[in-house]
């Protein structure tokens, strides 16, 4: 997992640097700092620093540690639920998405506590509606069909 994360950052840093060199100029026509001045320096520094990090981990033999870690399972499930919640919120709005998300999360992580889970599933959307919608007069996501 560590290796994948390092590679992800390295690839993003390389793409950032590429765009900074190709699309953005270092100086303006007047010889002042151009839009690419900062990004080019940052991009190069990021690529070099990430390479140093990866080399350092290869030296210390820690690059592949933790790849078989089973602890990721619960975090991955929660991340999956959360991203699905984002999509549900965009499509169906908070009235559907919040109970669905809370219900799914509690069903998975808090098994057997049916009464508690049911109370939370009902109470949270109501509290959110009154807190954000009524008390704070803030926008709430109503979805595409509202």
């Amino acid at each position: 997992m560590r290796l994948f994360f390092y590679l992800f950052i390295l690839v993003v840093a390389i793409c950032y640097t590429y765009i900074a060199f190709v699309d953005l100029t270092f100086f303006t026509n007047r010889g002042r700092m151009g839009p690419g001045f900062f990004p080019r320096i940052l991009g190069l520094a990021m690529v070099i620093a990430m390479l140093l990090v990866i080399l350092g981990d290869i030296k210390k033999n820690t690059l592949f540690s933790g790849t078989q870690d089973s602890q990721y399972k619960d975090a991955a499930v929660l991340i999956g639920f959360s991203l699905t919640f984002g999509v549900l919120l965009m499509v169906f709005g908070y009235v559907v998405a919040i109970p669905a998300y809370i219900g799914a999360t509690l069903f998975y992580f808090n098994r057997g506590k049916y009464v508690t889970n049911a109370v939370v599933v009902v109470a949270v959307p109501v509290v959110i509606h009154f807190l954000f919608g009524s008390l704070l007069n803030a926008s709430l996501p109503h979805g595409l069909w509202w």
């Binding site: 998300y101 508690t116 939370v120 949270v124 959110i128």
Partner: peptide
């Protein structure tokens, strides 16, 4: 229990972020 607290906190974070600019991209 953290397992009950966590989804509630996440919902508040999402609603709070959305309410700033009414933007799903920001969520």
């Amino acid at each position: 229990p953290y397992r009950i607290l966590a989804p509630l906190v996440l919902v508040v974070c999402v609603m709070g972020t959305f309410s700033v600019n009414a933007s799903m991209i920001e969520v």
